[in-house]
Simulated scan of single mutants.
Amino acid sequence: MRIWAVANQKGGVGKTTSVVTLGGLLAERGKRVLVVDLDPHGSLTSWFGYDPDTIAHSVFDLFQHQGKVPDGLPAQLITETSCKGLSLLPASTALATLERRMVGVEGMGLIVSRALAQLWDDFDYVLLDNTPSLGVLMVNALAAAQHLIIPVQTEFLAIKGLERMLHTLEMVMRSQKNPLPYLIVPTMFDRRTQASVKSLNLLRKTYPDRLWRFAVPVDTKFRDASQAGVIPSAVDRESHGIRAYRHLLDELLARTESAEVR
């Protein structure tokens, strides 16, 4: 099992779109994929037609056992999606109450790791969609992940949010023995606007060794896919955005395989 977290401390930068698109492309390649919604807003859950306000069982259930994960519970929480080979561990809005509920409970930062350990032989890839705020959910994701993907919208305020995310990553990684490799992914790029072009150039200048060399363009097919409750490549396999994510997936697979060889 390979575990990728998709995170940024700014909302609206393409985290959920990245999870759904990459997960769908992996499933199309015959991989067994699990996408996990760790955001109380439940955008990933809503994408596939489930209501995070009313869903009966969700990721929230994992956090109700004093830092332990009962045998078999993670598998019971998984539901299918409209894409063959792509499964979902949904979120509920109750996740927003975790911080105050879990005060003083030991081991809460490792719940997701323990849950995925039970699913290790069931999936080839797990993609974690994160809340845009630092807390127990993001700590869980960073602790579980083997690789971090940081989508960054190509606009100035999003780049400032990237600085906060990298500071958080550095702070969390101090408590772990091995650093978490990460890749910054420019998103929502519009070559017609000067602001977008300048932002991309700034990213390339500031993070030359950590930045994906391409960018995901603005593409209305992502919105169409979310409205239809399907993976974006099911709407248009050759749209500009899908082609970009296909190139990104190839890059991520190459990086992951290279890291495993070392």
Rank of each mutant, 00 (worst) to 15 (best):
N8G: 04
L142S: 06
K221E: 11
A5F: 06
H41V: 07
T168P: 03
T256K: 01
V59I: 12
A94G: 00
P70K: 05
L89A: 00
K198P: 00
S43M: 00
R32P: 05
N130D: 06
T81M: 10
P90M: 07
F63Q: 08
M188L: 14
H57A: 14
S87A: 15
A94R: 14
A7F: 08
I149T: 09
A143R: 03
V139K: 12
V69R: 03
T206N: 11
F60I: 00
S196Y: 03
K221G: 03
V20R: 01
I159T: 05
G24W: 10
P74N: 12
L162I: 08
L128Q: 07
R114S: 09
L116D: 01
T168N: 12
I242A: 06
G241S: 10
G229E: 13
T131S: 02
L203C: 01
S87T: 03
T54I: 06
R29F: 00
A141C: 15
Y50F: 15
D53A: 14
A141L: 04
H57K: 15
T206S: 14
L142Q: 01
E257G: 12
I231A: 15
T168H: 02
F123M: 01
S239E: 09
R223A: 14
Q146V: 06
N140S: 05
L88T: 02
L183A: 09
S46Y: 03
S258M: 10
L148I: 07
L62S: 09
R255V: 04
K198G: 14
V35D: 11
V103A: 13
L44M: 11
G104Y: 06
P40A: 08
K160P: 06
L98E: 05
T97G: 10
V20F: 03
F222P: 04
D124T: 10
R2A: 12
R213Q: 14
F123E: 02
R204F: 02
Q66R: 11
F48M: 08
R164W: 07
L128S: 10
L203E: 10
M165I: 06
N201M: 13
G109S: 02
H147M: 13
V112N: 08
A195E: 14
E257L: 09
P151A: 12
L38E: 06
E257I: 09
G229K: 13
Y182V: 07
D219Y: 12
L89E: 07
D61E: 13
L249S: 02
V197K: 11
T168L: 12
Q153N: 00
L127Y: 05
L183G: 02
K221I: 10
H147K: 14
L116Q: 05
D224W: 03
D71K: 13
T206Q: 13
R29D: 10
A144E: 04
R213M: 05
L38A: 08
A195K: 12
P132G: 06
T79F: 04
T187W: 15
E163M: 11
E80R: 14
C83K: 12
V13K: 13
M188W: 00
F222Y: 08
Y50D: 09
S258C: 02
A56F: 07
T81C: 04
P208C: 01
P186L: 09
Q227P: 02
W212K: 01
D209K: 03
K15I: 13
K84T: 15
R204S: 09
A158T: 08
K205M: 09
R174M: 09
T93I: 15
A259N: 06
T79P: 00
F63E: 07
M138S: 14
V20G: 11
Q66S: 04
